[in-house]
Design a protein around this nucleic acid. Sequence first.
DNA 1: AGCGCTCCCGTGAGCGCTCACGGGACTGCT
DNA 2: AGCAGTCCCGTGAGCGCTCACGGGAGCGCT
Lengths: 335, 335
Amino acid sequence: MVVPSATGTEPRKITINDVAKSAGVSRQTVSRALNDKDEIDSVTKQRVLDAARALGYRPSRFARGLVRQDTMTIGLVIPDLLNPFFTEVAAAALEAARTRGWQVVVYDTGDRAEEELGTLQVISSQVDAVIGYFSCPESELEKFTRGMPVVLIGREQRTRFSAIQIDGAAGVHAAVAHLVAQGHTRIGMLDHHTRAEPSIRHEWFTTAATAHGIEAGLMVPADQTADGGGSALRELLADHPDVTAVFTFNDIIAIGALREARRLGRSIPQELAVIGFDGLQLGALVEPPLTSVALDTRRLGALAIEQVARLLSGEEALAADDLVVRGELRLSGSA
Amino acid sequence: MVVPSATGTEPRKITINDVAKSAGVSRQTVSRALNDKDEIDSVTKQRVLDAARALGYRPSRFARGLVRQDTMTIGLVIPDLLNPFFTEVAAAALEAARTRGWQVVVYDTGDRAEEELGTLQVISSQVDAVIGYFSCPESELEKFTRGMPVVLIGREQRTRFSAIQIDGAAGVHAAVAHLVAQGHTRIGMLDHHTRAEPSIRHEWFTTAATAHGIEAGLMVPADQTADGGGSALRELLADHPDVTAVFTFNDIIAIGALREARRLGRSIPQELAVIGFDGLQLGALVEPPLTSVALDTRRLGALAIEQVARLLSGEEALAADDLVVRGELRLSGSA
DNA sequence: AGCGCTCCCGTGAGCGCTCACGGGACTGCT
DNA sequence: AGCAGTCCCGTGAGCGCTCACGGGAGCGCT
């Protein structure tokens, strides 16, 4: 019952030897009691357990980990846990890791690319592998992860690392096809506000659009927030009032656009159809529910963990072609 | 450049001694090179670094942790990362932990109370402290966390553990006051669907309601989902068509109610005012934006980490009265 | 009595690393 | 030449734990 808390004085760590001495046995016997091993008398075992409890003993995970090489800890690095997409990815990774009994240390870089390197440096000496969504150049990544399995998420270009690729080409094509079938001919896109070049999702959009013989130049960059989506939509409609449908970089932007459309008095989907990307659960909460090119985030997490497992065990790693999550059009109320 | 991956054969761990041998120095010199210590020639240092890289050496966190007692890892146990409230709590805790250079291992029990014990058992030998939202009885908690600092979140009754208390009394009072000021007299509540007794939030509501001289008996239990909120609202309105305002257990339920109200053709807030609880960021995404009794989740996370720090260092712990996060009415479009 | 067996328990070794110390080689000074 | 001082580098010890082994005590059997 008495848990001796360190009261300002030297909180010397209680070791297995202290317990052994207190119980009048050897450290090995203590170890046996604690780990539920066989070769121990049940009376002795209870005595040891009591002593351990009385002293407030807790085994050192370091010492144990040093001798038993079984605990696996992987680091999950994401830009922003509050971004629902990454929340879903994280939840999926946690779930997949749990089935293997792995620990997951989560690092949120707060959308600051410069934090990535610091995080990576810390991480590199704390985990057995890394799963993450990085924006820093590959060379930097490589520098801090020497010899450690790394699985990237949503990295567009092929790298020397494993990467779970997100392929939305077919899904976006289906989305545009759907809009065209509904009679839309003027379709805009609210892209992600990247520095220079448009996103790969924009590429998918333009290919799909031209394949359907419609103009694909109606693009406005948007901040990756609901507000960003809203103002981008306003901007788009101001320049091109004849636009009747928009495809967005992701669901957050789409939801912002949805909200803005309502404020502008445009009914959805009659006067403006909206299709997002990601397929967040969140999309079902807004009204009307969001049509989206959905990603299977659970599969994404499972794939990442699976690949880490293979890299770690030296098994044959999954080929790049198997590490793909494809977007799939999920029809709902907004288009 | 060559990173010798374990190719099916015995993936023997490369130790500091291997690097030392390869570089023709002692292990201590290797340690010096890797840890950026002083007493080493820069040429030697480079040679060691090259050797380490060539061998794909990565220091063992266990061995390092065993001798340097500085890395702190805390476990964060939450029922469901996909529940936005817990996402915010987790993000806040991560942020607060980061400023201290602590690692955070996240465990998602998937809303299954029986998982809590298993998780706790694993956790108890893997982290230095636990922050979590548990539903299991205190006695069970105690059994698995002997001698380990534990900080609970939102635990209603006082326990022998530290707990960050959520006090919504004043906020809920303000919410009811606001509704009354708007002329509402028939105010319902969509409570959390607990087993037996109503939630403490419901208590706050009834006290606030009776204080304003209005009937507080209009309660319907709801699943903690948007759909749950929707059907609970439908049920409430079916039984009591004269209800013009609802207070909900949390924002998710409120958002579901909002959606359902729209479907029923009730305009918000004119024909139905809705006030939620939690103050999720999510509330700003729906239309109209949600009025809510908001919790400062960042403060919640910071408090939890702060308390853990004190428990860990043996400093004087924060008193229960300081470990309170108070709900505050945040007015928005829905009421 | 002697053997083998089971049931407990303890001892040495070692996991991979860092800390404290010691000591050689070289410099510059008296 | 002799000495202190600086700059490197290596050696023992030990962090706290588990594994492999050895061995004593007690039993029943031939």
